[in-house]
Design a protein around this nucleic acid. Structure first.
Lengths: 237, 237
DNA sequence: CCCTGGTGGTGTACGCCGTACACCCAGTCT
DNA sequence: AGACTGGGTGTACGGCGTACACCACCAGGG
């Protein structure tokens, strides 16, 4: 009887259940807290049980990444290449905000996962459907780089912080710089002050992440559009 | 006597010696092999001895990063902002190629190091000296992001591989894709084939990393220059 | 002259981590 | 009924970062 309620209480493990729980755990506790032991405990199971469903931690991460990438919206039908790419990248960014550990996990890998490759393949498809040569599409993919997946690529980024330490930490205010900051880094202090003045309140959020992202994205996309329109090619001969 | 040759054989530890050895170890064996224990062994010392010179591993990494950033050329005098920024970023890229673990180490941190902040501050200084408003300079810094430090931001990058696994692995050829690759990712296969044809030999290096980097960099810088010339501002009112 | 304090290297130990390996129990198929 | 198999278990190993107590040495003051 006791064993029966036990077995009833938790469904049998499966690769999907493991991946799901792993993503949830990383979302709320940070990627640093995602150990095989913690994950097993979350699932009410002994650590080694996980290895019946994932080969090792590396493969677990791979599955988590592909689960996240699968959340990105499919390409919008009927839009031009620029709108299609733009919307999809913004969708990817939204997904990454739900899973702030994902950029670190993806960048730390030695090889791209199948899901990431499929996503990139689809992006190239959108470009070539928009009339891009393979040559230009190739260089554009390199130039966009991880921005294609909605990465922000900030050197210091609050979401990266959240990825390490969990959702709770992300809610904290961004910790005012120490007083000597302005002395040591006067130019940074100047632009930080300018950004603060942009907001309605002086002590508001330092800057609008969404605006910064779209600014950078459009800078890139506008440049790409210009090259495309003028028939740019890498071998001018 | 034995003790004397012992003490003569190795100079006493110092923070600089520790950081130097750590950078060298990460360069040749990969950041994954940089453990306090390995580093201590490299220095002929017991692991805990390191803690008399660095507070912990986190602070060790911080020191290593700042040591690497200090290798980047100072800003070129007498050049316009665009040339100055461009040259410095290319110098940063060269430095990162000597220390392929550095991007991972920098991105994995939760806060920027003093050395990185000083570098970014100097970059902002170059922009404002070139006539940029604080507003535009701010958004440009965000848009350039880690590219400012010479990061490549490729989703799959051979140098990232080297950073994980050491210099030896970087020398290996880049492992041809499996035969089903072209079936599953047809668009990627197409642009990969186009890139291969660009080279003199069909089986040459997939693409020219330096070219891709400068392509992306100039795309960004040209866009920035355009905004600067037309007096762009984030509050059009 | 000894003695004392601080600096820097040592040794031991703890609690994490990923995971190899042997086991065992419940079902299913023959 | 007996064999086979797939999923959960228990134990154990080697590695990690690092806390803590210890000690060897040397400088400076009584």
């Amino acid at each position: 009887m006791a064993e029966q309620t036990e077995t009833l209480r938790r469904a049998p493990l499966s690769r999907e259940r493991v991946l799901h729980a792993a993503v949830a755990l990383a979302d709320e506790a940070g990627i640093a807290s995602l150990s095989m032991r913690n994950l097993a405990q979350e699932l009410g199971v002994v650590p080694m049980a996980l290895y019946k469903h994932v080969a090792n931690k590396e493969e677990l991460l791979e599955g988590m990444i592909d689960a996240v990438v699968a959340e990105i919206d499919p390409p919008a039908a009927g839009a031009g290449w620029k709108q299609a790419v733009r919307r999809r990248i913004l969708s990817a960014r939204q997904v990454l905000q739900r899973h702030p550990w994902a950029p670190i996990a993806i960048e730390s890998r030695t090889a791209a996962t199948p899901g990431v490759l499929a996503y990139l393949d689809s992006m190239v498809g959108t470009l070539t459907a928009g009339g891009f040569s393979a040559d230009l599409a190739h260089h554009v993919m390199h130039a966009m780089g991880s921005r294609m997946l909605g990465f922000s690529q900030e050197l210091f980024d609050a979401s990266r912080n959240a990825g390490r330490s969990g959702a709770a930490a992300a809610a904290e205010p961004p910790a005012a710089p120490p007083p000597e900051f302005a002395d040591r880094f006067p130019h940074l202090a100047t632009i930080a002050a300018a950004a603060a003045h942009d907001d309605a309140s002086v002590v508001g959020p330092g800057c609008d992440d969404q605006f910064e992202f779209e600014f950078a994205l459009d800078l890139l996309l506008d440049g790409v559009e210009r090259l495309h329109r003028q028939g740019w090619t890498s071998h001018p001969g």
